[in-house]
Design a protein around this nucleic acid. Sequence first.
DNA 1: GGGCTGACCTACT
DNA 2: CAGTAGGCCAGCC
Length: 123
Amino acid sequence: MTPDPKLGKTDTGNWYQSVWKVVCEIPDGHVLTYGEVARLSGMPRAARRVSQALRRAPRGLDLPWHRVINSQGKISFKKDSIGWQKQKDLLEAEGVVFLNGKIDLGKYGYRGAVDRLLWGDDE
DNA sequence: GGGCTGACCTACT
DNA sequence: CAGTAGGCCAGCC
């Protein structure tokens, strides 16, 4: 496929688009960890690359970056930062509940969604 | 080419 | 549960 000169200068810059595509597919009210996004993008050890991709994402992309959190179920910004507040606000607007500053990955995470499909809400 | 940085992860203590 | 250590790898200087 032909590389887009606007986005990546070289082929090495194309992996951004893989990450953005995965993030775009996250349904409302659900979250994914950086590691999961990386794996779904075909890059198992690229959790840090995901954060870079989100930071470099164009504004026109309308990317739901707030649905990506770290493996602890928490927001990766500093708690006193603007980004932290913003992300929490956006998530709560979609129905995601914070418990003691943390998100229940068992309910809103990718793993939780699969488990509910297989086992139901009881477990 | 070499070294530092980072919206991270896993494992161990 | 909190803190530490090692690993990972694309950007940037």
